[in-house]
Design a protein around this nucleic acid. Structure first.
Lengths: 285, 285
DNA sequence: CGGCGGCTTGATTCGAGTCAAGAACCGTGG
DNA sequence: CCACGGTTCTTGACTCGAATCAAGCCGCCG
């Protein structure tokens, strides 16, 4: 694979689709994509963004799943959100760079990520003001998901909390063209995201298995009956599917995929991206 | 009082201070302030921003306390955040105007509010790009508070949840120059913000009274021992006090206050603002 | 004076946390 | 190839914090 070239294409595939959906013209896109660089791969479990470091750049997930979390004094971890291919991990640190508490980002699975310097973002924003609105929107969409989780965690039974999380993540992945119904979360991850104990998460999953909603096998949790899952959760995905933002976005990803079909469909859902510069996944090929 | 003139000053006092702290030059400020208009007063309990309406403008609280909430299907209310003088209620609706779920804003006490048209914001942003960053920051600060609440509600006993909420609100008000230790929340408000039952909130408050942390009298909850309160809560206000954002902001408010001292100190903490266009409070004078 | 909304209190239930221990599943190294 | 240490998952017994249900109380306003 011709690295520099496919890097450009890779960035185009997942990022471009997202930002076009956020209301950005394609010529402005190209400028953004040009500044994305610094591909690297992260092993599952290690930190992508460390807490407390003053950032000079922001990070984008190209493949794998990452989570934004915070560690409390007692050592427990609160997961705020999960990041899928195309997501900025820490764009909020561009806006509020000054000492951001102890929020960090960790790779849930092996990830490959790209970076963009804050100085480059700044330069871009001054020349392309509409891009600023798109980035602002991106951060607000993330915030809205957190707000929704607040509601979910506040009231709502353990069953609803877990089911809602699964629905949400499934929907987010579907929106970027990942149709697979398997979610590579550990039960610990789910516990930390739903503010439940691991033991209880396990029991809830047993229940879901009893309802034939998820598969028996553990580790990659596979959702069998997403309809029933949504019913159990009382899930209303409208908060993800802001008219013309994410729903368009899904369409755009499909466009991008077919446009780039010469590289194969694997590109769009991130497999190739994962491969580039990720020795762990690269070994699979 | 000369209304149009003092309106300008009023806006200068609470808004200007806040936005200067967010990194805005004072000449850009004046432009912003000029577009703020449409003063109106809202009675406690009624909605300032209705859910589901497509907004053409955004709202700023000048006096009183408002809350951003969401009503669930079962009728229960989840309060996301409280808004104090100088806060935008619904700036996020400028960024994501398309159907924002069922989030609304309600006046907790009698409020007086101002509005700014989205078209005016747009016009401003194109001429003053740095203002965009300030507004972006304002929304991100609000989001951070919600994120912090997520952590608080997720784990943490009822006592911590309530105590943390009180600390947070006290700190926010102090930051804009309101030193009073009285918080005009009903126990229902607190229950809806902490995701506890009203009954249990009551019991928690009994406990706090027993510790001599809050006063015996109900309704305006008065914090007597804020040191102990913070200890009970395990409160670390750094998430509010981003270096140079809110802490400066407090200083700026003081600056603004003294600069405008000819109008009297009451201006800065919103009393005069409350009076203007608010017949309910105006009756007090 | 009556009614209503907010506060208070007690009795009871129940969902979820904790503790503890065992099982299955790695990857590693002998 | 198998023994190992370490995660993660699983299950059971027990505890406890907070929700719920149900009344009574207070203060306010019409």
């Amino acid at each position: 694979v011709d690295l520099p070239n496919s890097t450009g294409l890779a960035a185009t595939a997942s990022l471009a689709a997202k930002f076009r959906a956020l209301g950005i013209e394609s010529d402005e896109l190209n400028d953004l994509v040009r500044f994305v660089k610094n591909l690297s791969s992260i092993a599952a479990g290690s930190d992508i963004v460390r807490a407390g470091e003053r950032p000079r750049c922001s990070t984008i997930v190209l493949a794998g799943i990452a989570c934004q979390y915070r560690r409390r004094d007692d050592g427990s971890r609160q997961i705020y959100s999960f990041h899928h291919p195309g997501d900025f991990c820490d764009l909020y640190r561009y806006v509020l760079p000054e000492l951001d508490e102890s929020v960090a980002v960790q790779a849930i699975t092996d990830c490959s990520v790209a970076k963009i310097d804050h100085t480059d973002i700044e330069r871009l924003l001054s020349s392309k003001p509409k891009l600023g609105l798109a980035l602002w929107r991106a951060t607000m969409l993330a915030s809205r998901i957190v707000r929704e989780r607040l509601l979910n965690i506040g009231r709502g039974t353990a069953l609803q909390r877990v089911a809602t999380l699964l629905c949400e993540q499934l929907a987010l992945r579907k929106a970027i063209g990942i149709e697979s119904s398997a979610l590579p979360f550990s039960q610990i991850d789910i516990a930390d995201a739903t503010s439940l104990s691991v033991v209880h998460v396990n029991r809830v999953i047993q229940t879901l298995r009893g309802l034939n909603v998820v598969s028996k096998a553990s580790q990659p949790i596979e959702v069998i009956d997403s309809k029933l899952l949504a019913q159990v959760a009382g899930f209303d995905g409208r908060y993800l599917d802001v008219s013309g933002v994410i729903s368009n976005w899904a369409a755009e990803v499909n466009d991008a995929r077919s446009a780039l079909s010469s590289i194969g469909a694997a590109l769009a859902n991130g497999l190739l991206l994962a491969r580039i510069g990720n020795p762990i996944i690269e070994a699979l090929f």
